[in-house]
Design a protein around this nucleic acid. Structure first.
Lengths: 234, 234
DNA sequence: TATTTTATTGTCAATAAAACATTTATTATT
DNA sequence: AATAATAAATGTTTTATTGACAATAAAATA
């Protein structure tokens, strides 16, 4: 480590990989880029880091600007810094991934952005290295969700066991035995059974559950292993 | 996301948290900083990212400059970017952690640096937010090592089962049953038993093992769960 | 009242993890 | 040459966890 360098004009940005779950599929929120280069192309929501703000703050700000949401699950993914990743300037981008309850998102909030939800398995070509960011975020999320109860972040406050199972099944492209799944989830003691039911998708109706937020925070890191054999995830 | 900003002179650096294992304890390689600010204080090995190199390249370069080593396990940890973290300039530092075989490191290689190994549990106060970086690196390493066979990176090419166990026990501040430990490790089929023994620490001698590097690469992500109940790690 | 639909619940078998003690190889000592 | 000392190597039993499996219950509708 030598002296400070001079004349190294780096631009520092953040980009957000925003995940949501619409009850059927895992989705990704993308925007049409509003300025050159690559104006009009699909991209992750991003922004430049201001002189006096932290990286986390920049990510929160950018996320809030698009979604109007606060208190969202947001985690730094990785810094991307290939020299030519942005052809115009040398830009270091710190990527973050966010998990939001898709129902909380109302497009009108951010009407100044041309944004849209796409299935994570099928979305348009993105600018720069944003495709890499999405890929990495997906595998990181799969990894984390196999051990920690993170997918609850994607659900509404009240949800049913079948809904939860659908989320996990869609997410891992597999199926689980209902009895074993429910037993495993309930054994964590993270859920509180409600008295009311969701009757929208069955005659009998399925009981709602809420997340026990205290325990959720306490136990977040406690290795719960939500996926039976989570092999070959990154 | 608006236009590109102008007049935001960020400096971008990398810092390396370098771990080694001396056969008894997990160690950290630190250097005495050679320039202002904070000259003469202990710090992580770091350096500035050059205009035409990637972040990974900068980290490799910095690590090589201090240790003379190549092909070392190196992984991006996190970007740190609090506005005042470096009092002189707005510096974004991308931290990396490295695992090296401590025996491969020879101090004379980097005689231009004043460096020293310290136990991770007891090392001097560091500059800036380097202490935070070390803390985060430690918990990340503990997390990863509980699931993936990453600690082999810290051992010499040939090692014995008792040595391996000592590493894990020191690392997790616990003890394991010899029989269960050895069974678990061997069940991964990652080790190849050698014909010769290490007699330095017992009369009978303990067989050496080598890592099966092919399988190591293949199986790295395959959830091996090296620690029985890895609770409450981050 | 019968039918349909989907949620809910329990048991048994197989597998994996954890607890546990003795024997073996070698060197040093007498 | 026999014996003692040291640390390595190894196998079995018990317990806990996981996985496979199907019948019943609740509510709406015909």
């Amino acid at each position: 480590m030598d002296q400070y360098p001079s004349g190294h004009p780096y631009t520092v940005a953040v980009d957000c990989i925003i995940f949501g779950f619409d009850g059927e599929r895992l989705k990704l929120l993308l925007i049409k880029r509003g300025f050159e280069p690559e104006k009009g192309k699909w991209s992750l929501m991003g922004g430049f880091v201001k002189p006096k703000e932290s990286l986390d703050h920049a990510a929160k700000r950018v996320l809030h600007r698009l979604t109007g949401l606060e208190g969202v699950y947001l985690e730094q993914l990785k810094a991307f810094g290939m020299p030519k990743r942005d052809p115009r300037e040398r830009t270091i981008s710190v990527s973050y991934f966010a998990l939001i309850g898709i129902h909380k998102y109302h497009k009108q909030v951010s009407s100044s952005y041309d944004s849209e939800w796409f299935p994570v398995t099928d979305f348009p070509k993105l600018i720069f290295d944003h495709q890499k960011m999405v890929n990495l975020a997906r595998s990181r999320l799969r990894y984390k969700a196999s051990l920690h109860p993170i997918l609850f972040e994607l659900l509404p406050e009240k949800f049913t066991m079948p809904q939860l199972q659908m989320l996990y099944e869609d997410f891992y492209l597999t199926t689980f035995d209902k009895r074993n799944f429910s037993r495993k989830i309930l054994s964590t003691n993270l859920l509180i059974k409600q008295k009311d039911k969701d009757k929208s998708s069955s005659k009998r109706g399925a009981f709602y559950y809420k997340l026990n937020k205290e325990k959720y925070k306490e136990n977040f890191h406690a290795f719960l292993k939500f996926i039976p054999n989570p092999e070959h995830l990154i």
